[in-house]
Design a binder for these strands. Structure first.
Lengths: 132, 132
DNA sequence: CTCCTTTATGTTTTTTGGTATATAACGGAA
DNA sequence: TTCCGTTATATACCAAAAAACATAAAGGAG
């Protein structure tokens, strides 16, 4: 999953295209969103919160706050950590964390599908290809 | 179209639910989004930019900036205005503006459909109804 | 005991997306 | 000609979000 914060490559014949955001929300606000799930994946792959945050050009504190929010809302830890030792410490996804990533990606894929589908119909309605 | 900035009523048996945003993007950034289209609708219904802005608790300037952005990006005016006169002035949607509203609402309806659909499958995957 | 790197957490600073405020132009009605 | 409410536009201000910075604690290795 690449970490797209801006639009990707697009046909330059079309002036406009659909974009969107999808997230899972709970009583405390956002539970899982795109950036949060990328963070989880990076932690899974690097074994470190700080490395994951660095790779996303995100401050450690911000990453930690997001994880804290996710762990609290999930009711169980999605990421478990340890401090000290040879490598200084580390972090890894719990089974619940893995599940969260899979769940979001599954639903997000359907969302991306819809965006692509909407884009396909768009040029039929004028306003595209300078038809106005 | 109600102007929902926060979640609406939801079944309180489900802990989480899907939310999202959809917008039409162009080279200059957002062209049409939810708030922008509500603004257009309010202008259509009230005949006034300032009345529309007031009804959304939005500053006139912010509303005007949004309209300016939309008019410029569309290549033609979505809203036409006049100053002075008995009522002080006014604004109304052009045919292109009407079309923009209809277009967005059409696509947004499909988006809302998807969100509802995603919510329906959600409780099957654990993490809901306290099953974890 | 001292490094090292990371987790954990608080405080300060900056950025940013808006509101608030001010001012001018407009043009019909009184 | 003076009002009025609106469009149009610039500038000042503010508050929430994010970043930047600071500091402590952990624990294995040397």
């Amino acid at each position: 999953m690449t970490y797209e914060t801006k639009k990707g490559a697009k046909s330059d014949t079309a002036r406009f295209f659909w974009r969107g955001r999808l997230w899972l929300e709970g009583p405390e606000g956002t539970f899982l969103g795109y950036g949060r799930v990328v963070l989880l994946e990076r932690i899974r792959d690097s074994g470190s919160i700080s490395a994951a945050a660095r790779s996303m050009e995100m401050s450690y504190k911000h990453a930690w706050d997001l994880l804290d929010s996710m762990n609290r809302q999930a009711g169980c830890k999605l990421v478990e950590t340890c401090r000290g030792g040879k490598a200084g410490g580390g972090a890894r996804l719990t089974p619940a964390g893995m599940k969260a990533v899979a769940l979001f990606k599954h639903y997000h894929a359907r969302f991306k599908e819809l965006l692509a589908e909407l884009d396909n119909g768009l040029n039929l309605l004028g306003w595209d290809k300078g038809s106005e």
